[in-house]
């Protein structure tokens, strides 16, 4: 049985094949994975908010897209991954409750997705799959043996992106 590594909210983990990284119950959060297909190493980050500069000081950089992604990237590179080979996948960013006059806080899901994509692009990392938006929660996992990123929802079952 390959190792199953749980990634909590506002947290990230890196690892290598044959481990699987999994994060449960994402709503407006985003699960973003990095993977080096040749070396079969990667990471999964579960961010809550797009931008640390718009929040009060936090002890946890993994909570934000702008501070969490560079951290995970550095750790994946430490495992020997080559930056130009890295591919990214992301899922989450839902709006769980539909209010008519949704505030910025309610729309945080789409802001999260935008922030993650912007940072990945700035780092020259290719986004090869995405499943964001909607009004439902997701459990996401990445199998480091082949980079398969699975998204599970309660209504639609499990799919691979």
């Amino acid at each position: 049985m390959p190792e199953l590594i749980r990634v909590g909210m506002a947290d990230y983990k890196v690892g290598k094949s044959p481990a699987t990284l999994i994060s449960y119950g994402l709503g407006s959060c985003i699960g973003v994975s990095l993977y080096d297909p040749q070396l079969k190493v990667g990471g999964l980050l579960h961010i809550m908010l797009p931008d640390s500069t718009q929040a009060r000081a936090s002890d946890n950089p993994a909570k934000f897209a702008d501070t969490g992604l560079p951290l995970m990237l550095a750790d994946v590179l430490k495992l020997g991954a080559v930056k130009t080979r890295l591919v990214a996948k992301l899922a989450g960013g839902a709006q769980m409750f539909a209010f008519q006059n949704a505030t910025d806080v309610m729309r945080v899901g789409s802001r999260n997705a935008e922030a993650v994509k912007k940072i990945l692009q700035a780092n020259g990392i290719k986004i090869i799959a995405e499943d964001t938006g909607g009004t439902y929660g997701r459990t996401v996992s990445i199998d480091l043996t082949n980079g398969s990123y699975k998204v599970k929802t309660i209504d639609k079952g499990e799919k691979e992106i």
Binding site: L49, D59, Y136, G137
Partner: peptide, 20 residues
Amino acid sequence: MDMAGAILNVVLVQLGQMGD
């Protein structure tokens, strides 16, 4: 009706902006 983590997100995001 969904996963508890996803539903609690709504509340936690607002707090997350202010602290841990």
